[in-house]
Amino acid sequence: MVEVTATPQSSLADRPVQVQPDTLFRRLVKRDVAGSPFVVRLEVFDGLRLVTGPQDQPLASCEAERWYVGPGMQRVPIREGRVRGALFLPPGPGPFPGVIDLFGGAGGLIEFRAGLLASRGFAVLALAFFAYDDLPRTLAQLDLEYFEEAAELLLRHPKVRGPGLGVVGVSKGAEVALAMAAFLPQVVATVWINGTAFLHGNPLVYKDLRIPPIPYYTERVIFTEVGALDNSAIFADPRDPAYSASAIPAEKVRGKVLFVVGEADRSFNSKLFAELAMARMPPESCRLLSYPGAGHLIEPPGSPLCSISSIRGTPRPVVWGGEAQAHARAQEHSWQEIVQFLELHLGPAATMKL
Rank of each mutant, 00 (worst) to 15 (best):
G115H: 11
P301H: 05
V99H: 03
V221M: 09
S307A: 15
W320F: 13
R329L: 14
E43M: 08
A177N: 09
D101I: 06
I311P: 00
M73G: 10
L127K: 03
A13Q: 12
Y291W: 13
R156V: 08
V187S: 06
E63P: 02
I211Q: 01
P301N: 07
Y217E: 15
R27G: 08
I338P: 09
D208T: 13
D101C: 14
L87K: 06
A123F: 10
Q9D: 12
L288V: 10
R220F: 07
V226C: 01
V253N: 10
A177K: 08
P282Q: 05
F38K: 03
R312V: 14
L178M: 02
R79Q: 14
I234R: 10
Q325Y: 07
V261M: 07
V83D: 01
P71Q: 11
A264D: 15
G35V: 02
A114Q: 12
I234E: 06
P8F: 00
P249M: 08
V191R: 07
V160F: 05
A326N: 11
G92S: 00
A177R: 07
G53R: 12
V83S: 06
E332Y: 03
E263W: 04
L102P: 12
A277F: 03
A123R: 11
E263S: 11
P241Y: 01
T190W: 12
V4W: 03
P241C: 02
V17W: 13
L102E: 12
L24V: 05
A277W: 01
A264N: 14
D143L: 06
G92P: 09
I311L: 12
S307H: 12
A279D: 14
P301Y: 03
Y146S: 01
L178K: 03
P163I: 05
A179L: 13
A197F: 12
R210M: 14
A228M: 01
L342G: 04
P315T: 07
G227T: 04
G98V: 09
P315V: 04
A197R: 10
P283N: 04
F268R: 05
D143V: 13
L50E: 14
V168W: 11
R15Q: 15
D101K: 02
I214G: 01
A242P: 00
G85Q: 08
V39D: 00
H296E: 04
A118H: 07
S36K: 04
L155Y: 09
G85D: 06
T196S: 13
R316K: 14
Y217F: 15
G173A: 01
F259T: 13
P249T: 04
W67Y: 13
P203S: 05
F38E: 11
F122N: 06
Q340I: 00
F38S: 06
E149G: 01
A128N: 09
P215W: 03
I100K: 01
V33E: 04
V167Q: 07
R66Q: 15
A277Q: 00
